[in-house]
Amino acid sequence: MTNREQPAATDNVLTIDGLNVSYGKVPALRDVRLTVPRHQITAVVGPSGCGKSTFLSVLNRLTDLVPDCRVSGRVEFDGIDVLSRGCDLFALRRRVGMVFQKPNPFALSIRRNMELPLREHRVPATEIDGIIECSLRDVGLWDEVKDRLDKSALKLSGGQQQRLCLARALSLDPEVLLCDEPCSALDPLSGEIVEDLISRLRERITVVIVTHNLAQARRLTDNVAVFWQQNGAGTVVEAGSVDDVFENPQSEIASAYVAGSRG
């Protein structure tokens, strides 16, 4: 634990300040403040319904898909104002990838699943095959699927599907990867594989992972943000390095919540 570098104060890839989100008139998040250090894994933990997933989908503006969703505040990604109207979503979502709770491969072949986003981003055709192989190797799926790249991705097992989605996201070479409980819909063994993969990503990219599994947060991540529902909306009640939050929580809520992981 101690061999992990402490984040330098300036090198935050994401800075979230005063973020409010509501669906119609129902508030979901209120006054969220958080910084995400580069090349580390940050866990977002908290009970269900406290806005963890909403928080994640603000970071790549997926909230735009929800018609009556209102977002205000400030989210800065590498100097870019994410919530501004002029923000180039195409570039943002390429640099900030996402893996969902439920594996969501498209109802296409494995190859087309990988190809579609690459083509969309105008990756030269000559490079595509190489990138596909490389990404699938990254997630340890290449040897399992190299002989059936043209078969439907829906025929893969749940764990394989999730790794395919991970490979698909990684093929665009993102700087940040958002993971929304990526292991919770998988069987324990597949979950462990995916967890290992995410843990190894730390060298290359920044990961923000939503989880309700405190043990996972503890063994996998560098930083933890505890979300809690207060006055009808989710907010961050405690954030810091994983050791600080688990061993020496400052707030009562956080200490009660993480106590579950000690016991």
Binding site: R61, D64, R85, G86, C87, L89, F90
Partner: peptide, 9 residues
Amino acid sequence: KPSRSNSWS
């Protein structure tokens, strides 16, 4: 709705 249109390609 400019906020939506602007974010589209």
